[in-house]
């Protein structure tokens, strides 16, 4: 994949997550700071399984190669 493909895909994912989080928090009339804090939390929750599965995949990949 080229860099622009990654950039475009990640941009769409971030926009999607922002829309979802905004709609989830809009009823609470919370401030932008609180929204940013929740957004960061969600990003971390998404990143944790991604990092975990990525590391497992790389571990299996290199172990099989050896």
């Amino acid at each position: 994949m080229k860099k622009i493909d990654w950039f475009f895909s990640l941009f769409l994912i971030i926009v999607g997550l922002t829309c979802l989080l905004f709609s989830a928090n809009a009823f609470g009339h919370e401030s932008f700071l609180a929204f940013g804090r929740i957004f960061f939390k969600v990003c971390m929750w998404v990143a944790c399984p991604v990092i975990l599965f990525g590391s497992l995949y790389l571990w299996f990949h290199y172990r099989n190669k050896e």
């Binding site: 475009f8 895909s9 990640l10 941009f11 769409l12 994912i13 971030i14 926009v15 999607g16 997550l17 922002t18 829309c19 979802l20 989080l21 905004f22 709609s23 989830a24």
Partner: peptide, 11 residues
Amino acid sequence: SGLGAFFLALG
């Protein structure tokens, strides 16, 4: 939120 899910899925 539908639009957000759509963009997320698209990415």
